[in-house]
Design a binder for these strands. Sequence first.
DNA 1: TTGACATGCAGGTATTTGCCTGCATATTTT
DNA 2: AAAATATGCAGGCAAATACCTGCATGTCAA
Lengths: 106, 106
Amino acid sequence: MDADKVFKALGDPTRRKLLDLLCEKNGQTLGQLCENLDMARQSVTQHLELLAAANLVSTVRRGREKLHFINPVPLHEVYARWVRKFERQRLSLLHDLKTELEGEQE
Amino acid sequence: MDADKVFKALGDPTRRKLLDLLCEKNGQTLGQLCENLDMARQSVTQHLELLAAANLVSTVRRGREKLHFINPVPLHEVYARWVRKFERQRLSLLHDLKTELEGEQE
DNA sequence: TTGACATGCAGGTATTTGCCTGCATATTTT
DNA sequence: AAAATATGCAGGCAAATACCTGCATGTCAA
């Protein structure tokens, strides 16, 4: 998994909205997704390409349509490998120092 | 919490490295952080400003130094409010459809 | 007080990004 | 086959981004 691509992909609100849309209804076509995204089709395509590069979305061709499916695995991996360690960190010691110092000056 | 700022802040590898550095040793000065980040001090400052804007880092002045502290709360909030719903989603029905369709063409 | 040190401020530039339009291709429908 | 539909490809532009350098300010120590 390329964590950088995942974070980059999530860094844009349009792309997060695309994931939201696919979360509501998986397997939507490009056209369907465009209906909810006040911008040109080609822009949506580019966003979807980035999501696909991050492996957050995979596609299936069905005739002239292209169906888009969300893949939650990279999200979970990013959380498990990266976010988690910040959550359960014992920052308390230095956090107390910080709070103390803040009390001095604020 | 401004989720957009948090995602934006996390979208850059340098800023994630800054969080990593602060995770290893909280309360570091700008100078200390620069030592680990092969780029000009001013660039690091700008990255730290973005992290602060996302409330991922808070600072305390101590004399001529500026101490940087990591704040894991926005990370947890982003996970709880946004990432989580993708993890425990029942994408199975349509996922099965997708798998089936993939089988047809691949 | 003077010099060394830590950071702040103000631009300047090259690259990336997000968006667009115009035309091409592929598939279905009539 | 021809028209309608769904998507792909190529290029172009403005704004944002990630860097930088040079100078200013504030703080500590000799």
